[in-house]
Write a protein that binds this DNA or RNA. Structure first.
Lengths: 206, 206
DNA sequence: CCTTCAGGTTAACGACCGCTAACCCGGCTG
DNA sequence: CAGCCGGGTTAGCGGTCGTTAACCTGAAGG
C-alpha cells in the first residue's frame, strides 16, 4: 500500500465532499452549490473539474467498485496459491471491513445511488460488482463445498449487508474502537457463512 | 394475523405505490405526477388524500417502525414468559425476515430516506427504531450473556444489515423459493450472533 | 329536484436547480 | 513585457417540481 503523502488535488477534495454529501442527503438532495461550498469554491466552479453532477457520482461509483474488485483479486492472488481456502476468505473479509470502516460514505452510495447513473456507467458498475460477488462465491464454496451456488451467492450478498452495516453503527465514540469493531464484524461474517455451510452439509448428509 | 379481505382504500393504494417508487428512485427522484399516475389519478389529485409528498413518506416510515416494534413486543410477550430466550430470539428473527421478504420496498426506505423527514417525524421514527433495537439487544444478551451491551448493540445492527439484504437478493426467480431463503437468512443470523457470543465468552474466560 | 360533497380535473405560479455564458485574474513562459 | 491559460467569479436561462386555485361531476340525502 503506497500511502499518499502529497496533498490531495482539487478533484479529490471535490469527490470526497461530494461522497459525504450524497451519502448524507441523497444524490438529488444535494445541490452543486453545496458541493462547491464544501470545498471553498462556489457552484459553477465545479465545472472546471467535472462535466457535471452526474459525472461526479459516476466517478465515485466506478471507483468504489473498481477498487473493491482489484483489491479482492490481489488478495486472492497473494493468499490463494499456497494457503488454505479459509485464509483467502479471511483476507477477503478483512479487506471489505477495512473499506466499510474507512469509507463509510462510499459504502452508503455503493448500494443506494446506482440507479442515478447513465446506462453505460451503470452497466460498468454492475459488471464490476458482479465480478466481485462471483469472486467471493468461489472462495466461499471452497470453504463450504456443500453449499450450492445460488445459496452461496445469497449468503455472500447477506454478508455484504452485514459488513456494510457500519454506517448504522453509532457515531464514532460509542463504538469500542476500530479494532474491536473490525474483529466483531469479522467473526460474525465467518459465523454466518459457517451456519449457512453447516445447514447445507446436514442436508447433503441427511 | 387478521388477513384483510376488503379492498384497499385509495390512501393505501397511494402509500403502496409511493413506497415502491421511493424505493426504486429515491424520495427526491420521484415526482407527485408519477405517484398519481401509478394509482390512475394524476398529480394534484393526491392532495385530496395527503397534505403533501412529505406526509406520504412520514406515514410510511412511522408505519414501518411502528409495526416492527409492536410486532416484536407481541412476539416477546407471547414467547417470553415461558420459553427459553433462544426461542424468543428465533421469533424476533422470524418476524424481521417475514417483514424483509414481504415488504422489500419498505425495508429499503426504512434506512435510506429517514433524513428527508420533518424534525418531529424523524425523532418519532428514531425513537421507535431505538426501542426496537433495544428490545433485540435485551434478548440477545439473554441468549449470549457474555456479550457486553455495546457489542450486542453493534451485533444487532449488523444482523439487521444481513436480514435487510433481501432487496439485493436476485429478482424473484433466481432465489430458491421463499421458504429456503427465509431459512438461510435465519440460520445465518443465528450463526452471526453465536460467533459474536463465543468470542465474548472466550474473552471472559481467558 | 336541488344541494352538498368527495374526489377528481387542468392551469398556472413560484421556487429551485443544473448548467452555460461572459468575464476576471494571477502566474508561467517565450 | 505580452500573452496564454487554469481556475475561479457572477448573472441568468430553461426546465422541473411541489403546491395551490379554480372548476367539474356523479352520487347521496332531504
Amino acid at each position: 500500500m503506497a500511502t499518499r503523502t502529497d496533498a490531495p488535488t482539487r478533484r479529490e477534495q471535490i469527490l470526497k465532499e461530494a461522497a459525504r454529501l450524497f451519502a448524507e442527503r441523497g444524490f438529488h438532495g444535494v445541490g452543486v452549490d453545496e458541493i462547491g461550498a464544501a470545498v471553498g469554491i462556489s457552484g459553477p466552479g465545479l465545472y472546471r473539474h467535472f462535466a457535471g453532477k452526474d459525472a461526479m457520482l459516476a466517478e465515485l461509483l466506478v471507483g468504489i467498485s473498481g477498487r473493491l474488485l482489484t483489491g479482492a483479486k490481489r488478495r486472492v492472488a497473494e493468499a490463494g496459491g499456497t494457503a488454505r481456502p479459509e485464509a483467502v476468505l479471511d483476507s477477503l473479509i478483512e479487506g471489505h471491513i477495512d473499506f466499510a470502516l474507512d469509507d463509510r460514505p462510499l459504502i452508503t452510495l455503493h448500494d443506494r445511488e446506482l440507479d442515478r447513473l447513465r446506462d453505460s456507467d451503470r452497466k460498468l458498475v454492475r459488471q464490476l460488482q458482479r465480478q466481485y460477488v462471483e469472486l467471493w462465491v468461489e472462495v466461499v464454496r471452497q470453504v463450504h463445498p456443500a453449499l450450492p451456488e445460488p445459496a452461496a451467492r445469497s449468503a455472500v450478498h447477506s454478508v455484504f449487508g452485514l459488513l456494510n452495516s457500519t454506517p448504522h453503527l453509532g457515531r464514532r465514540g460509542s463504538l469500542p474502537g476500530r479494532g474491536a469493531t473490525a474483529d466483531l464484524l469479522h467473526r460474525m461474517a465467518k459465523g454466518a457463512f459457517a451456519a449457512a455451510g453447516e445447514a447445507a452439509e446436514s442436508l447433503a448428509a441427511g
